[in-house]
Write a protein that binds this DNA or RNA. Structure first.
Lengths: 255, 255
DNA sequence: CGGACTGTTGATAGGCTTCAACCGACGTGG
DNA sequence: CCACGTCGGTTGAAGCCTATCAACAGTCCG
């Protein structure tokens, strides 16, 4: 089933890298965290980590590959809630529930690590720093959700698509370091439609419209944004909610 | 500025009541929590607690009166993100940011208590139980946000309105104990429009349509739902995300 | 009683959906 | 290596839901 390599290099771990973005970790915190990423298992594109209404006793950490969470509605449509990238914790939102409220599915082949809920309680009890970071992560997730909510409720198709591409661009830049004028986007237009609350047909039309205006170019599974500022203007994109604009975690502590 | 009555009856405190819904609190936890609700100040309908882009160094607890948070968009529209009821913590979402990402405004006259961010760190360090509850609250807030996101993205006006009314009904039932066939709803149709991503005109039409079908009745500032199940069916309302369906907080701990 | 604000109703318009046909890329098997 | 089936994407036509504009009615409060 897998390869429990307990003595993995802390700097290799993408969850450690992820947390390190918020605050520099001590060696002890790193090893506490790495326990969450023990015993990873490979998983194929298109398969589900779990489905709505399944029992929920575990979280999951994404080591490799993209995934998304979704809800299916009574009217037959599907709403995609999040896109998960390597390093993300999947299922944090359901911490307080015993049932899955959303399904999660792999976009492409990848590798994941399950760990039980109680590991989070361990963290609360053992590491003040990790607890604070987890809270910051939850805080940021909420902020990103509200940004998407605004995007879905208030913008037209052009802006929705532009906004989403900019968000992905930023997230990829964060995890991979370099720029994002061109990046890989392994999502079908059907997935984009379910994510943006549009029909696949209209996603296609919107893509070509944006291309004709020179705001984006795409081929195969990659997108290039020739002029970031122009696209941000088009989308009404506001980067206040991004990680660069978060406050230093313990700023308010000693005053 | 106001009346710091430090020796307030713990059972009077609406924030204690709020937390108690998640897990029974020890006396020590109660007093830790009540410090968050010290020195409340009255505040009038229509005034802002803060606005977008203000510096964020404090949270706020709502003791009396309704409030809502909102974002204003470049295109002149406004999206309302949350409705806050007495007992709610306002601004939790911005824990990790130094700027306000949304404004907050009172719907009616009320009473609020500010407290600095560092009080949360105190809680992380001093009370494992309160930390876990805070995490459960954050978890639940996220789940409610995703529910609203789905509502905004995937449902028509009838369902949006019906769904919102059901959500408020449940929340009021939680905080006030008794049923919710009839409840007070001090929100104008303009506010509802900004909340549901509709125009005020269409909110009006949708209200009358639902009334004509006997699904809701309204007068002045109150709504009555004659047949809860019928309305739930109409809205595609699924109560898995409600507090009753959360898991016992420490269930996963000792196995 | 007057004025402001909130809600109602009608007419028109636009953005997006749906349906349907078609195209192209890709992978499989003969 | 080519034929073929499938899946993802494109394009056109028609229709629906909701927005917008505008006029009017009702309510509240000074």
């Amino acid at each position: 089933m897998h390869t429990g390599e307990g003595s993995m290099d802390p700097d290799e771990s993408c969850i450690v890298r992820h947390f390190n973005q918020y605050y520099p970790l001590s060696a002890e915190d790193k090893s506490l965290l790495i326990r969450l990423e023990d015993s990873s298992t490979p998983i194929r594109a298109g398969t589900s980590l779990w489905e709505e209404r399944d029992q929920a006793q575990e979280f999951c950490t994404l080591k490799r590959g993209w995934a998304f969470s979704y809800r299916e509605l009574e009217n037959g449509t599907r709403q995609i809630l999040d896109i998960y990238l390597p390093g993300d914790i999947v299922g944090l939102r359901e911490f307080a529930f015993s049932q899955r409220l959303a399904g999660v599915q792999m976009v492409e082949d990848g590798e994941i690590c399950f760990f039980p809920h109680r590991n989070l309680f361990d963290i609360f009890q053992r590491s003040f720093t990790l607890t604070s970071i987890l809270f910051a992560i939850a805080s940021r997730q909420q902020v990103m959700l509200t940004e998407r909510l605004v995007n879905l409720a208030r913008r037209n198709a052009r802006q929705k698509l532009a906004h989403f591409l900019l968000e992905m661009c930023q997230r990829i830049k964060q995890t991979q370091g370099d720029g994002c004028e061109i990046f890989r986007l392994p999502l079908s237009q059907e997935v984009l439609a379910d994510l943006l609350g549009l029909s696949p047909v209209h996603v296609s039309r919107t893509f070509t419209a944006l291309s004709e205006d020179g705001l984006i170019f795409r081929e195969r599974h990659s997108v290039t944004i020739p002029d970031l500022e122009a696209l941000k203007h088009e989308a009404g994109f506001d980067d206040r909610y991004l990680i660069e604009n978060m406050r230093p975690l313990f700023e308010g502590m000693n005053d």
